[in-house]
Design a protein around this nucleic acid. Structure first.
Lengths: 338, 338
DNA sequence: ACTCGTATCCGAAACGTTTTGGAGGATAAT
DNA sequence: ATTATCCTCCAAAACGTTTCGGATACGAGT
């Protein structure tokens, strides 16, 4: 591995000149710059990024910290698609990406601050972290730039990117109302996610707009889990036979709800309309296919990275970004026939 | 950020002593070691890994190089699950993980060697690379340790981990034969993947064992793509009405094949049995659910990392690992009724 | 008294860069 | 002739570690 010294020696100049030549400084003769470039290529020289980072105190590296990078994530692919977006954007902008995953286990051992400092990331993107996570307040105090995904919190050094969950949920429920459904249940996610509250708000917005009173007992906590949603939906449908439609805060929970309905002998969608949220792959393949609110997870990651690098490079036009949802009509919803 | 010098000054010793104390060398008095540790904690000292790596020439970092980290990967989740396995194993062993993604675009600009050297990874895992990829021969020549996923090639510094595709395919086809199917078509993957050849071999093994002659025209190239598989399956089924079963080299292609069959008016599984390969999430949710050969992608990543770190630390008991498949019976196959 | 071993510590070099603050010479301006 | 201004270049310091080769002191063995 050729070092800068080798190039300098071969070119008969100092290391300073090589450094400045290769980095495009103007105080080096074009003639010698060309010669140095030539020799560098010849020697297959490529600068040692460790040494560079050490002296420059810049690593050109961002971290993606994900809480719970588990195999179960395969079902909704949230993390994977965010990762793709982050990776693409980081690649385009010349940043390296290191993946950091934590769980409550590891959080005992290392504080957020230590993690960030050790890994030598300039900035970090947080994905999958819950609102009661101890890291969260550390993040807000810390002064290393950070972008939160789906957690609308800000400070001097932290911003966020999220989807317009409220509007999305509202359009889902409005769709059901437009189909003539009067009694609409909701399977929500757990309360350790901001999006749960937002989607509940959207649900209520839609009801209110049509002058329908909100029924507390119509909404249950499915914890974003398929099985949990199934049992909750079963109970909900049994306790409230008047329900003709369900809005689920995630497609995965919608899957669970649909299974519950099927087991209860309901015909879908004629006897129960279901709309989900997320537009995961599964929702297009299941039977019936799922009407849902699409959110662009790839874009979420991409924008997060754009925001983060923006902060790192000082162009802080904005520290937050809210993406729109898209309504997707499929087979799981139809007019109310009761 | 406290440096080792700060600790040394505070403790009234040299940096050497601090370094050796913290790193557990024996030539430092236990009393002073304790004192130093105390002070280090007090100052929240944590060593600068850049500096350490620079002098030690060890980064404790491995790279996961994936070719085509694209959103389409959501459908089979192969990369995501491998990633989970790699991440978990790397985390357990104290290695950092950097994600590197390439495409033919980027490969023009940087050679494999440059990539590895610049990113300062000690070893690398390759996922999703095709057999005609120019990087492949570079890998084999290079002397940085590397583990290939699903490419059975070896050299001094490279090993691989894969699944027993041949045996898996054989058991899939044997299952169909046992159900009384005599004419079994195959939708294979493209030839730029080793697994395609292996799965074809397994298909032939099964036929041979039952004394059925192999019919060249029964196997088509679906290129691991759902749509492509659909068109190929359509043609295949039309040209060979005698076929009562299909073996597909991936679940995704099986989805395409099933759609093709449905469009041709075939009842599934009564009029066509289909078995896939992979056991992706979708296969359990589709209608009919898919009989398939499961391969453990998480384990693939985990074992790859174990092998790689083994090589890095000199315990080279083995440089390759072959995982077993598991047969999973679902709804898409049944007895031949013709 | 001399040597030897052992326990404990330290100075300085090394890793490969970037950057600071000039030096030297040539040319232009006064 | 002197000064100022460019244009090129460079030596040395700095980044924060680890490690090599001693150095010092003390007690034991002879």
């Amino acid at each position: 591995m050729a070092t800068i010294r080798d190039v300098a020696k071969r070119a008969g100049v100092s290391v300073t000149t090589v450094s400045r030549a290769l980095n495009g400084y103007s105080d080096v003769n074009e003639k010698t710059r060309e010669r140095i470039k030539e020799i560098a290529k010849e020697l297959k020289y490529s600068p040692n990024l460790l040494a560079r980072s050490l002296v420059m105190k810049k690593t050109k590296t961002i971290g993606l910290l994900v809480s719970g990078l588990k195999i179960e994530g395969s079902k909704d692919n949230f993390t994977y698609e965010v990762l793709c977006g982050v990776n693409d954007c980081a690649g385009q902008l010349g940043y390296e990406l290191v993946l950091i995953s934590t769980d409550s286990q590891k959080q005992q051992e290392k504080t957020y601050k230590q993690l960030v400092q050790e890994r030598k990331v300039e900035g970090i993107i947080l994905q999958g972290i819950k609102t009661d996570d101890p890291y969260l307040e550390e993040v807000l105090k810390s002064d290393t730039p950070c972008i939160l995904i789906d957690i609308p919190m800000e400070s001097d050094s932290v911003g966020y990117v999220t989807t317009d969950n409220r509007e999305g949920a509202k359009s889902a429920v409005t769709h059901l109302l437009d189909l003539g459904h009067q009694h609409i249940g909701m399977i929500n996610g757990h309360s350790q996610a901001f999006v749960s509250q937002e989607r509940l708000d959207g649900y209520q917005d839609a009801l209110q707009e049509k002058g329908i009173t909100f029924e507390e007992s119509y909404v249950r906590n499915g914890a974003f889990l398929e099985e949990r949603a199934e049992t909750e939906a079963t109970k909900l449908l049994q306790e409230h036979p008047e329900l003709t439609a369900l809005f689920c805060a995630s497609d995965l929970m919608a899957m669970g709800a649909i299974r519950a309905a099927k087991k209860l002998g309901r015909k879908l969608p004629e006897e129960l309309s279901v709309v989900g949220f997320d537009n995961i792959i599964l929702s297009a393949y299941s039977t019936p296919s799922l009407t849902t609110i699409a959110q662009d997870r790839y874009q979420l990651g991409f924008e997060a990275t754009k925001l983060l690098t923006g902060m790192l490079e000082g162009n802080m036009d904005s520290k937050k970004k809210i993406l729109n949802t898209a309504f997707i009509k499929r087979e799981s919803t139809c007019e109310n026939h009761t």
